[in-house]
Design a protein around this nucleic acid. Sequence first.
DNA 1: CTACAGCTTCTAGCATGCTACGACCAGCCT
DNA 2: AGGCTGGTCGTAGCATGCTAGAAGCTGTAG
Lengths: 223, 223
Amino acid sequence: MEQAIAAVRAAIDDGRMKPGVKYSVYQLAEGLGISRTPVRDALLRLEEVGLIKFEARQGFRILLPQPKEIAEIFAVRLALELPAVRKAATADDPALPAALLQQQRLMRDAAAVGNEHQFAHHDLGLHDLILDAADNSRARAIVKTLRETTRLLGANTADKTRTLTDIDDEHTPVIDAIIAGDPDKAEAAMRQHLENTGRLLVAQALRTEASDRSVDEIWSTVV
Amino acid sequence: MEQAIAAVRAAIDDGRMKPGVKYSVYQLAEGLGISRTPVRDALLRLEEVGLIKFEARQGFRILLPQPKEIAEIFAVRLALELPAVRKAATADDPALPAALLQQQRLMRDAAAVGNEHQFAHHDLGLHDLILDAADNSRARAIVKTLRETTRLLGANTADKTRTLTDIDDEHTPVIDAIIAGDPDKAEAAMRQHLENTGRLLVAQALRTEASDRSVDEIWSTVV
DNA sequence: CTACAGCTTCTAGCATGCTACGACCAGCCT
DNA sequence: AGGCTGGTCGTAGCATGCTAGAAGCTGTAG
């Protein structure tokens, strides 16, 4: 079943499966060479996360997050990650600075060669590291799930309006402030980063569905 | 499948299924008069939420949340519900005050006759109403899930150290502040309420597992 | 040419068959 | 008598059978 989940995620990531198109458990199971049961289980879990939607007796469809949903996701992330980054800045874990800098180095390397996939992976790793430092595994799990549902869009977004290096530049003040033990600065930098990213994704979602609403309008109703 | 989820929850609630005991999909399916597949699906979802745990080739077991987990859950709830109650206090939804007072009335009635089940239901309804007013369905869904995992304990807690009326008294200032449009007071009152409840549940969890750690120790590492 | 009706062909969802494997128990060997 | 070993039982997990129902197509009638 884990295999099936990973397979579907991978298929979505590399564009073999596209939003809007109808798929069926039968096809997918055959393609993966396993039976329908674990595939269905996997899809049920993805449905719960909101990544797909079963339509009764018609198959299922990959969903693109709506602009409002994206804004909601980032509102939740702000609520959870801002306190987390404060805690990370005040907690004195001697191993944390090294881990942060290591993660940053990995991201820089990925950015240098333009490897978006690697970059996204290490970006997740950095945020995860901060939530780990805040010592709340539940919050960590929630944010991980939220990121998963926006990742689909994220992959397409970075190269359009923001380079990988731009994103990396937003991380730097966060990392510096944590290492310096300055919770206010860390929080402000993280807020900056999440707001930028969130508004960008909302803007893109608005574009793809050709809506005439404004980013600010949606953003302000939620955040 | 929804039927199976509801059945398992109900069985846990009224004590037909107890934490620590081993159960199997076979037994359960037979008991419910449906096949193993939907029962298994339901249990997989409950496992994802952390309410049960499958043990390979041995059945599954109902889990009691650990003290740390409870503290984490309340840390997340604070992060999400404090902003929400602020928004509820500033948003001018003309229908909100009436809805809040209505919900409070239902809770009072349930408290008056000592109907814990009804009370818990309406309590959930009140918190849900506030999150709804904040207009973030994602946060709403998250909190709902979190409440589900603590509900098991919650039912046992209320009658021990806090009467239903005590809980109700904590809600009053929250509702009043929202109606008065005072976000600061609303936030403070909600914080008071959530901290009380959270610490109480942590204390109970510590008692049931006979730990010698203190509530403050656990609470302060997370919140 | 168009509208409609019936049929074929998909589907999800539930039920059931099947298998590999860990736990537990009884019986044997030392 | 005590420890080990083989066998039996029960389990999750995967595969497959089965059914009701919706979508779309095809052929026919107007």
